[in-house]
Write a protein that binds this DNA or RNA. Structure first.
Lengths: 210, 210
DNA sequence: ACGCGATGTAAACATTTGTTTACTTTATGC
DNA sequence: GCATAAAGTAAACAAATGTTTACATCGCGT
């Protein structure tokens, strides 16, 4: 629901409320009247601004894609993004109650062109990062570098998709500060040493609390 | 659409067609008339058998859960399931065109009680497997065994959720025979040695084609 | 003050959807 | 054979939903 002091244009308010509702319940399950009510306007105004429900859907898609694109651009410039947490880093740029993660989850299972474009872009970055690491000698291409890049990228996205279920099972939101710390600590360790830890005959395992 | 020679009861046919349509388009987007038409019966008969659309939804949920439960039981008895591919192994028990994977994907992003139960069960198995490996000395508990188990379980499920998008990006279905081979080969390597491969000073990296 | 476009609304409309009703057909026990 | 229950259907119904129409209000340049 829009707050009483809100200088966004009603067009933007409608789009944002639609995004929130689409993320929460899925676009099909949300009615124009619900969106209108959440935005504090009439149903007719929603149509007036976006022509149809499908037009609104597209507008929301474009908006999400733009938001993510600018975020990804910003991230590729500041080079502090390790391979483990491309998406996690992305999410740290969003407010914790942002509807975008959940919207993305729905987008990905739904398929469609937008999802394909975004997925492609994310995995391309994952591959580029891995290639850079191989170049730098901090990673191995494996038997098939592209498959390896896909594995890394998909693992990254998985935290996002399973956020709620993981929160239940772990007792802590893996995208919260504390949760993310535990999670990436574990991921980093596995990516560095594998599941078995560093071979004891070679060097002692590296632990956080030795 | 039901085939002409089909000895299933019409009740089961309706349930199966509903499952297929729910998986393909999401339960909200599918109408009772579509299900009826796919099953080759009238819409009224769908209601007659399942009382309401929600009743049908529940019946489909129960059926999927039962199918998976019997599959998981069968798998825990034959002890040849490595930690990397609990779900993959599950899927190898299903026909390649089974709607169940896609149905599960929708179930998981939707949340709900059924999804919670199933997710819980899968991650519990993941944890038990990891604990057994630690006991056997083939794995390390890491800084937080439960988080580590969650990471492994979720990675496993991710292939399932991203199947279509991965097929696009990789050029091969990661759940096909060839695709699954490449995928788990990569996963195994990373779980065994990490991204960097075995430290060269200790022993040469283990490759499939040396 | 006034015209006018932008912004907004309530009520009506056509269609879709889940469900009900009244009715027919098919199988089954006796 | 026949009654009776189960399986099945077409048509009607009520509510919901996307959209349209006709009408109101506000801001603003002149």
């Amino acid at each position: 629901m829009r707050s009483s002091t809100d200088d966004r244009t009603s067009r933007a308010i409608i789009r944002d409320e639609a995004l929130a509702l689409f993320a929460a319940h899925g676009a099909d399950a949300v009615t124009i009247r619900q969106i209108a009510s959440a935005a504090g306007v009439s149903a007719a105004l929603v149509i007036r601004h976006y022509e149809s429900k499908d037009g609104l859907r597209e507008a929301v898609d474009v908006h999400v894609l733009k938001t993510l694109a600018s975020m990804m651009e910003e991230m590729t410039q500041s080079a502090d993004t390790p391979v483990t947490s491309q998406v996690d880093a992305m999410l740290r740029h969003l407010p914790t109650d942002s509807p975008i993660p959940r919207y993305l989850a729905r987008l990905f299972v739904e398929g469609g062109a937008t999802a394909g474009t975004l997925f492609h872009r994310i995995l391309d970055i994952s591959q580029a990062t891995l290639e850079a690491m191989v170049e730098a000698g901090t990673a191995t291409p494996g038997a098939d570098l592209r498959t390896r890049a896909a594995f890394l990228g998909v693992n990254d996205l998985a935290v996002l998709l399973f956020r709620d279920l993981l929160t239940d099972w772990l007792g802590i939101n893996p995208l919260s500060r504390e949760g993310l710390h535990r999670w990436s600590n574990e991921v980093m360790t596995i990516y560095e040493e594998g599941l078995g830890g560093a071979p004891l005959a070679c060097k002692p395992p590296v632990r956080e609390h030795p």
